[in-house]
Write a protein that binds this DNA or RNA. Structure first.
Lengths: 251, 251
DNA sequence: TGAATAGTGTCTATTAGACAATATGCT
DNA sequence: AGCATATTGTCTAATAGACACTATTCA
């Protein structure tokens, strides 16, 4: 580099944060999208986000945007940095680097018409992936989805999707929604109950529409899952999700 | 946000990339450091890095810096983004956001006195962690180390530390240097040889100073390791690294 | 009672850890 | 031969997948 050249000044760039906010509703993974009210990409769906302010960290900016978009207390949400996106052409207005954040939360109240976002709404992730999103948000969404799926293998963040208290079935439905295939209830229960600190029993019961009452739990203190709870290729075969598998040849 | 306010302009920030460059030499993990030649943090050790140029991606900037610091063809190195650091106070000169990259490479030639870096040198990571580094580079180094350790569990990047062709012992020494404890040679061999695409046998042999000749391998095409090769707490107990373990009570 | 969901038990296959045993070069 | 390292094999413990079975509630 040439930081000491007499006349040289480092280039200045605009920095934004973009949020991939996931929740599970009606058994399906949803992502928060807004329809853009301004150019470029007018009326295209996009991830919520905004410029970073002076004097705040990227995480603070992400929390601020999160609060603005969801009107939710950000303390109840899980937030983590995904990565930075820096293609010089990613914004037609000029050089804008964005840092994407992943937020996971329980079934949230529908965001009220935000301050400036034209319209914010929950979209099923399968729909969002199929639509054309503004900027490079399709890639960011794909990365966020893959990161979330991977996080469920190695950490206890799945519980961040649940409203406390919750049942083991609730938790399993989270995994099924995020991973996109069904899990064996018995083996799933064994795994999560034997992982110290994943679940904290409340002693209370939940009465479902029909069937035996289920024990209710709260999130435990453990953050990681070791050994991990892996999505093996087997799981999708054995549970009927054959989308990525070669056809099965019967005997 | 208020992007549409008539007078409002988004704040501009300076963006840098910083590199955590690891290699294994003499059986120990080393990181590339420079001694700063300018204020602030004059004469403090720091991670190599520099400003991003107009029109280049962060990754291109990282590759450019990497080449400048190591004089090495960056194509032989593994490079991946770590995360962004954005504390407004992290640089006393003003608002500078940095994106850290992790680079892994085989035992590299000692970098020649770089263009402007006062002095670049390989430091054992244990030493580097104990020293006071410039800016928030100590935190970046810690994050980079933990990320590298975790990557070795789930991917085949360990082979990026090896000069081809290499033996299974060479590869095991990488794991031992990065993780900081010894592995069972027999079980390690079983794991890596049974992972399809990790190693590609060359048919050639390597003659060690003493002992039976070892088969030589090249990197295979597989990128991930599933199931992963986990560093369990057991491994450190059973191999004599008791730093984080409670004392063993004999019968 | 039967439907529906929660929860338990069990068998088997896979994998990892411990470690013995064998192989092959060198001095 | 004896040493050092590579490589193979074997036993055991832990874990996951498959799935049968029992438990509890309501209609």
């Amino acid at each position: 580099m040439s930081a000491e050249d007499t006349q040289w000044e480092p280039p200045l760039v605009t920095v934004t944060v973009d949020l991939v906010i996931f929740t599970v509703r009606d058994g399906a993974l949803h992502v928060l999208l807004i329809d853009r009210g301004i150019e470029p990409y007018l009326k295209y769906p996009a991830l919520p986000g905004g410029y970073i302010d002076k004097g705040e960290t990227l995480e603070e900016a992400a929390l601020r945007e999160l609060h603005q978009e969801t009107s939710l207390d950000a303390r109840t949400l899980h937030l983590e940095q995904l990565r930075a996106y820096s293609d010089p052409q990613r914004d037609p207005r000029g050089r804008v680097i964005t840092v994407a954040y992943l937020a996971l939360g329980p079934d949230l109240p529908l965001p009220v018409g935000g301050s400036d976002a034209a319209a914010a709404y929950w979209a099923p992730v399968s729909d969002a992936l199929a639509r054309q999103l503004a900027f490079d948000h399709a890639a960011i969404l794909r990365d966020g989805l893959e990161h979330a799926r991977s996080q469920l293998e190695h950490t206890t963040v799945a519980a961040a999707f649940c409203t406390e208290p919750f049942t083991i079935s609730d938790l399993r439905h989270i995994y099924e929604a995020v991973w996109g295939f069904k899990l064996d209830p018995s083996n799933f229960r064994r795994k999560v109950t034997r992982t110290d600190g994943f679940l904290e029993p409340t002693g209370q019961h939940h009465l479902p529409q029909t069937g035996r009452p289920a024990l209710l739990y709260r999130r435990g203190k453990a953050a990681t899952l070791s050994p991990p709870l892996l999505r093996t290729s087997q799981a999708s075969i054995l549970n009927g999700n054959l989308t990525d598998q070669p056809p099965f040849e019967g005997p």
